[in-house]
Design a protein around this nucleic acid. Structure first.
Lengths: 245, 245
DNA sequence: GCATCGTGCTAACATAAGTTATTGTCGGCG
DNA sequence: CGCCGACAATAACTTATGTTAGCACGATGC
């Protein structure tokens, strides 16, 4: 089962036809990208919506003087900006972290969805709203949390999201981000990211080595990061929708 | 003309019927709130979408220990979270800054829009995408910009948004935020906000006194804040849509 | 007309985080 | 094999920003 279907089924119950529709769209117009390359660039006209099939990517913005901020991460099953094609140009870039494969979803795909696949349409709205909530939480993270809280929070979020897509074990997940990536995502310097990770390691909250992250005690990491998963809206609203039909 | 219509017309050309529909919805189910009160609270079940008719409000999140972050501002004409009712509970609160009047837009209103008002639907998508872009820009702001850049950037953004809704003159606008509000929005301490404002004043970039903000030289303020308005997507895409009809 | 409160301002001091630099390790590649 | 580049780790030092505290002003209310 694809990561997208897996993720969406956490929220709505999809029919066989729904799943077929999604899997068919995910198999057409597939492209692959090397690590550390751009999928789309700020200033370009957005043409398609991108669905991440495999690998990690990120959305980033850059100032004229080179300062760079990663504003979000894309994991397998994530969709980049529904309906983006109504805008004239991209206000940010999308770049890969690892090797990535994506499917380009054309405008017509979304027309079909809204015409004949109400459950998928609802699930896509859920995706949109959760992404907005994540972005707000990042604002909170950068504005109010200390370095170690911030790092702990980010690790929790990524772990929860990976688990949702079926990409994490009980206590561990693959983790391809470098400390430089973490610095650009948290707004900290590379050196301070290193210090902060040492601190989390010393408290036995994380084991991070060789692209693998182990979280021996998720509850403690969550408190350390003041992490409250409510903003991910993991509860399945589908039950209520089903009962209305 | 209402602030909402005025704002949306910057993006799509609305018909008389579109405008009537929006103005009718804005006149029903109106409520007013005193300054510094909550319109909605984290944890509640979202019932309606709120349209801000008059006054300033904000979205904020709070940590258990009391730290508070304003994650966005609502100005007249702004809509709080399209389609929010598909989520089970609010992950943030909405509070007023000034006296505020709002119209509650029920689910059925949006059903009507998507059934029979395609231009409004497109404009609402534009609103949603711009709000997401603003939230990303705030992430950038908190992560990469220094205190004075951050403050200059925020002031530019608010000024541009007010102008879009027809609420600003060439060089000035009313500005009800206290320094404590600015602190919660920028992630700085109150004291440092004060220092930063003094600095901007000393450079003749702003005149801020008695709830009134004057920007004698917007271009210089924009460079000081590394402000690039592209993320507000002010260009009217409407022309292209019109020509397709 | 006096107390009170919210707001703005300023000073002195404390500290979290940034900067620059060096070193070590590992894996890939010529 | 040995060089090189990416990444991680750590030390020494600087600086931006936070903290605590106190004062002044104006609006509000009794």
């Amino acid at each position: 089962m694809s990561h997208l279907v897996r993720k969406l089924e956490n929220f709505v119950r999809l029919s066989a036809a729904d799943r077929l529709m999604l899997n068919r769209a995910a198999a057409q117009r597939v492209r692959t990208f090397a690590p550390r390359t751009d999928i789309a660039r700020e200033g370009e006209k957005p043409k398609d919506v991108h669905l991440i099939l495999n690998g990690w990517a990120c959305r980033y913005k850059q100032l004229e003087d080179g300062r760079r901020q990663i504003v979000s991460f894309f994991l397998p099953g994530d969709i980049c900006d529904l309906n983006i094609f109504i805008l004239r140009e991209m206000d940010h870039s999308i770049g890969t972290i690892t090797p990535v494969s994506i499917a380009d979803l054309p405008r017509e795909f979304f027309d079909e969805i809204s015409a004949g696949y109400p459950r998928i349409a609802t699930a896509f709205w859920w995706e949109t709203l959760v992404n907005a909530a994540i972005q707000r939480e990042w604002t909170m993270n950068l504005g109010q949390r200390t370095a170690s809280e911030r790092m702990a929070h980010l690790l929790c979020e990524l772990f929860f999201r990976l688990r949702l897509a079926g990409l994490a074990d009980d206590h561990s997940c693959s983790f391809p981000l470098t400390q430089a990536d973490l610095a650009e995502a948290t707004g900290l310097s590379k050196v301070h990211v290193n210090r902060t990770l040492q601190e989390l390691r010393a408290s036995n909250l994380i084991v991070l080595k060789g692209k693998m992250l182990v979280l021996p005690d998720l509850d403690r990491l969550m408190s350390a990061g003041l992490f409250n998963a409510n903003y991910l809206h993991l509860d399945r609203e589908g039950r209520q929708l089903d009962s209305n039909e």
